[in-house]
């Protein structure tokens, strides 16, 4: 079993990305031995009403009859009307959890850190509370592409340690997957919190498999049990992340391909 916690379908507006349907994704993933994909529709990052992207994904899921086991996430924009009812509805339709895209939806995970009277207060925490109630995980997208090559219309910043700390310390019960985050930049404060809290998982797409980026150091600090496989599909070559699993002593922890994350999903318990 190889569970991929970092994949998307949908259109990426900043460059042409092919194989971005469930069928295309599954072909790329199966070719790399991936058996399960945690997937969301990235159109939801850009639509005014993110939930319309969830409905698109639901329609694709109904049509899909291939081998891949998809675990769909509903993208939730907690600054938008009716987000709560929409999120519950998607769970009722078989979605496995929620995804937050704070940079793309224009809010902070820790609004108290910013002085902005228009910033919705603590909405991300409300999403985590809802996830707790329904016993589903939440994925938080820290970045999609490398920051150095982004178009000006893309978001300039990745998520900050302090934001993650504020959110994760406010709710310690929900399983949270953080994708596109470089674990090498996790600071000591966040490290300590993750060790106390548990239930926090990072994918491996932003670390080099061998010696660069101090992945060994990051894993030594946080513990390998909080790392999971991510392919980065369809934006990145999945092979790069499979190569990391195959070669690197840093990734020799047996839980990384599937065991660390499996129990997060009711569907896989």
């Amino acid at each position: 079993m190889l569970i991929d916690i970092n994949s998307y379908c949908g259109h990426w507006p900043f460059r042409n990305v092919s194989e971005n349907s469930l069928i295309g994704l599954s072909e790329l993933a199966l070719d790399n031995g991936i058996t399960h994909m945690v997937v969301a529709n990235i159109n939801g990052f850009f639509y005014k009403d993110a939930n319309t992207a969830n409905i698109e994904l639901y329609e694709q899921m109904k049509e899909y009859s291939g081998e891949m086991h998809f675990l769909p996430l509903a993208i939730v924009n907690p600054t938008y009307p009716e987000w709560e009812n929409d999120a519950i509805k998607m769970l009722e339709l078989g979605f496995c959890g929620f995804e937050l895209a704070p940079r793309y939806h224009g809010y902070s995970l820790a609004p108290e850190m910013l002085y902005d009277e228009y910033m919705p207060k603590h909405r991300a925490r409300e999403v985590l509370s809802l996830a707790e109630k329904y016993d589903v995980p939440v994925r938080i997208c820290a970045s999609v592409e490398n920051f150095r090559g982004r178009r000006r219309m893309d978001t300039p910043d990745n998520l900050y340690n302090d934001e993650l700390f504020a959110l994760l310390s406010a709710n310690r019960n929900v399983n949270v997957m953080i994708t596109g985050f470089n674990p090498a930049v996790i600071d000591d404060k966040l490290c300590r919190l993750i060790k106390e809290r548990g239930k926090t998982y990072f994918d491996i797409t932003q670390v080099e498999g061998f010696m660069i980026n101090n992945v060994k150091t990051a894993m030594a600090k946080v513990d390998a049990k909080y790392f999971c496989f991510g392919s980065g599909l369809p934006f990145q070559y999945a092979e790069t992340n499979v190569v990391k699993l195959f070669f690197s002593k840093s990734f020799s922890h047996p839980g990384i391909p599937s065991e660390n994350i499996k129990n997060v999903f009711k569907e896989l318990r």
Partner: peptide, 14 residues
């Protein structure tokens, strides 16, 4: 440039 898994991956995945 020292990014081994990145470059081996993109070669074999291309």
């Amino acid at each position: 440039d020292g990014m081994y898994s990145s470059c081996v991956g993109k070669m074999v995945g291309a």
